[in-house]
Simulated assay, not measured.
Amino acid sequence: MAPYEALYGRKCRSPLYWDEVGERKMLGPDLINDMIEIVRQIRLRIKEAQDRQKSYFDARRTELKFNIGDKVFLKISPSKGITRFGIKGKLKPRFIGPYEVLDEVGPVAYRLALPPSLGNVHNVFHVSQLRKYVYDPKHIIHYEEVSLTPDLNYEEKPIAILDQKIQQLRNKSISTVKVLWNHHGQEEATWELEEKMREQYPEMFM
């Protein structure tokens, strides 16, 4: 119910409920009927828009169901303070694993067998954070362990400056450096503002 109805025990006298609180005698049936019809059309069109958007979502949605013993990938995200990887998504590892499903905790949550390096992370995850891994004996996965915080965030740190260039604009010059980040190869190095890098990582320029 609306807050007004919860506070006063009756519906607010608005065009939405004029047909329910006895306002017909005051304003006339024709005006009330017009208002009711307009509100009915608005509700109908909102319902049509909601149904249309729901159909778009359902067409791309698949119900995930895992069994005990299945292997799954676990979704992670970078730290919120590092905005560069929110823009350049190719640099951030999206999933780690695979890890074994130990138990089903309710219809949409699962308990995973995490390695000792993630001992400080709660091992129950919502199904939206998991991706199924199809087991193949010939498939050998090589991955580097990422140091994660309890909320499954991680921080990228620069390890080397590979190159430097000056971009000449109309009124000023901008100095940029090519930075190599840990957990990534040289092909994934990014160009960053030299001033910003000197401020955040002065040890890289000593």
Rank of each mutant, 00 (worst) to 15 (best):
L74P: 02
L31D: 00
V105L: 05
Q41T: 03
T190H: 08
R24D: 11
P15Q: 04
S55F: 04
G185R: 09
V146L: 13
T176E: 13
M1A: 06
Y8G: 02
Q50L: 14
Y4D: 08
G28H: 04
F73R: 01
E5K: 12
N153W: 06
W181N: 06
G89C: 10
K138W: 05
E188Q: 15
P3L: 07
R94P: 04
C12W: 06
E63I: 14
R24T: 12
Q186V: 14
G69R: 02
Q200C: 07
S14K: 09
S55E: 12
I96H: 09
Y4M: 05
E194K: 13
E145R: 11
G86I: 02
Q167S: 10
K71A: 08
R111S: 06
C12G: 03
A49W: 12
P150K: 08
L64Y: 10
L91H: 03
K178W: 06
G9H: 09
I96V: 15
I141E: 04
M197H: 04
L180E: 03
P137V: 10
L31F: 13
V124H: 07
R84D: 11
E48Q: 15
N67F: 03
P115H: 01
V105C: 12
I36T: 14
I82P: 00
E194N: 05
L27P: 00
K172Q: 13
P202F: 11
L74M: 10
I87L: 14
R40V: 03
S79W: 01
F73I: 01
R84I: 12
D151L: 05
R61T: 15
H126Q: 15
S55A: 14
Y8M: 07
G119A: 15
E37V: 00
Y201I: 05
V39D: 01
G86S: 11
S147G: 05
S14E: 12
